[in-house]
Design a protein around this nucleic acid. Structure first.
Lengths: 181, 181
DNA sequence: AAATGCATGTAAGACGTTACATGATTTT
DNA sequence: AAAATCATGTAACGTCTTACATGCATTT
């Protein structure tokens, strides 16, 4: 049996959470896991069909009026696959792709102003994510423990990032002033 | 003129830093940017040729004894492209793919032990990265400001992660005890 | 003599986004 | 009547990893 693809993992979980259509799944991904795990329609719909072929989900046509609609549920095999995957296993893949950091890394080839500008751009982008996460945090009470944990983690992480950028910016500005003397 | 591909960006910068061969570039990527920007041989070698076609780098054959070796340098156009890209521009792409967090997110479908186990696995993986970064930090003095900044950022980030995991683990264990009463 | 490091490369496939297309339903 | 939302899907393209293959040079 072929193992779950990356997008397959999130889909299975989202169906377990009660999301029924590809559209629903995408909505929730954008709202809740986007900051550490994203997915696009171009992945979701084909993957749903693959999961069905593998017998992990079952889709039933349930139109809303004249609008086509396929509702998915987990099969017992799907529940088992989700359960298996939830078992802690070695180092879980962790990846970051941060172009702001890459610009910082090569910032010796630019001006001090560019370096600080890039730092500010990073700060702004983390602030923006933070604002979005803070909006979600207001329905905190209606949230299961798992989603709540990752929300807290995201909030803490981006707050830390913003602070680091601010602190570093102050330090660089200070150093620049000292050099001017 | 076609814009720089993701891998193209890091290659151009690495050549500017004095790395001459595909092999050298890969070594430095693994040592220094891996934690926020990775690249594989399968990308690097073809991309070097594309960059040459675009006139951004120039390759010259400089064998070491009987061993083939191609040494790359930036052309003026390549320097300009690097310089352009270094200019702060909007929100720099930032992506995280964290399977540990995804497991946490769905942890309501598992046992409390699994949740804690996954938290510990996350902690361990961040500790491992931390150890690697700390080893690099010892040659701190010989490091340009840019690379030094990103190293500090990586150290702080993974330290924060480890602490968050530890703190959360304590809290979860505590709650589990309370529930047992 | 063997192991490690230097050096280059490719083929296959997995993974992903973007942009486009379509049309019904609900809200304003 | 228009705009927003619900709902599904595909084609093209871009990107990336993995696994494999090759062979010289240097160190042990």
């Amino acid at each position: 049996m072929p193992s779950l693809t990356p997008t397959g993992r999130v889909i299975l979980g989202m169906i377990a959470l009660g999301k029924q259509t590809g559209y629903d799944i995408k909505q929730l991904v954008d709202k809740s896991t986007r900051h550490f795990w994203s997915a696009s329609y171009g992945q979701i719909y084909p993957e749903l069909r693959r999961l069905e072929e593998q017998g992990l989900v079952r889709g039933q046509s349930e139109p809303t009026g004249g609008r086509a609609r396929t509702v998915y549920t987990l099969t017992p095999a799907g529940e088992a696959a989700l359960s298996d995957w939830l078992e802690p296993a070695g180092e879980p893949p962790f990846e970051v792709r941060d172009e702001g950091m890459l610009r910082l890394f090569f910032s010796d080839f630019g001006t001090p102003e560019q370096r600080i500008g890039n730092l500010q751009a990073m700060r702004d982008s983390h602030r923006r994510v933070l604002t979005q996460l803070e909006a979600l945090d207001e329905h905190e009470d209606a949230m299961p423990a798992g989603p709540h944990l990752t929300l807290e983690l995201g909030l803490g992480l981006h707050r830390w990032f913003v602070e680091w950028c601010e602190e570093t910016e102050r330090r660089l500005v200070q150093e620049q002033r000292n050099d001017a003397d």
